[in-house]
Design a protein around this nucleic acid. Structure first.
Lengths: 138, 138
DNA sequence: CTCATGTCAGATCAACTGAAATGG
DNA sequence: CCCATTTCAGTTTATCTGACATGA
């Protein structure tokens, strides 16, 4: 009554994630960045200046890891931390112009990855897959 | 022209994987095992006695990690290593009776995880999702 | 010589934990 | 007092790399 290893949903999703993640980090590394940095830049561009804790909630990255990744983004002048005048505990983090340029560059890299990742599916399938994957991740 | 963070296939698959992996390792930990050990037991039950290198290829686990996980399985008497009489480099690894019992137990745990993981999808959707996920992981 | 195998030490990365300092 | 935020140090897990000895 043993099911073969390779029909379980968690297994298949794990394999798909592995392939996607490999494509992604390879492409980002080649572009001189990393998934965490892209995620943070994208969240900053989408939501404007926010606190680091809020950034963590938006991206699913742990607070302590947000700190480290922001150190890298600040060093590259892609983001700036300023103290929040209305709340002394918080930093307000904003994307810079250079950060937007960097983000645009990374978006292109990311789009290329999506195409390669989704290549095995037809366009109609992609739409349905994305819908179902979104529900499974929620 | 910035796409929101949460429509990318790699992102959605990553979130789904995260949720599935959390369900899985929690359930296995509660059952006193780990994903690697389950994968190896399942491969041994499906393919009979094989070498460690072959086990690694079947499960996608690195050779060096197969060694460590087999140490745990051997210590629990769930698998046995014997030298391959036809090839002095190899160990022939076989599942034991206790290993089959353990595997059956873990299969039940795993099936419960699959149900919870796939709960957001209808039965018809699950079938299509599995098919597409399999293609994306290959 | 080459290649495969099993083992070991260690690196890497994502994710997380716990604690401290600061402030609401 | 309790709670949120930022930061730091460190742990865990999965994955992978490089090296080594052994044998096909």
């Amino acid at each position: 009554m043993v099911q073969p290893l390779d029909v379980r949903a968690t297994w298949l999703v794990s394999r798909a994630h592995r392939r996607g993640h490999a494509l992604l980090s390879e492409a980002f590394a080649e572009a001189g960045s990393r998934p965490y940095r892209y995620r943070l830049l994208a969240a900053l561009a989408e939501h404007g200046p926010v606190s680091q804790a809020q950034l963590g909630r938006l991206t699913g990255i742990d607070r302590s890891d947000v700190t480290a990744a922001l150190d890298a983004l600040s060093a590259g002048r892609f983001a700036v931390r300023r103290p929040d005048p209305t709340d002394g505990r918080r930093n307000l983090v904003a994307i810079t112009d250079a950060g937007r340029v960097e983000l645009d560059r990374l978006e292109l890299v990311l789009d290329g990855v999506q195409d390669r990742f989704l290549a095995p599916l037809s366009v109609a399938e992609r739409r349905r897959f994305l819908d179902m994957a979104a529900r499974l991740g929620g």
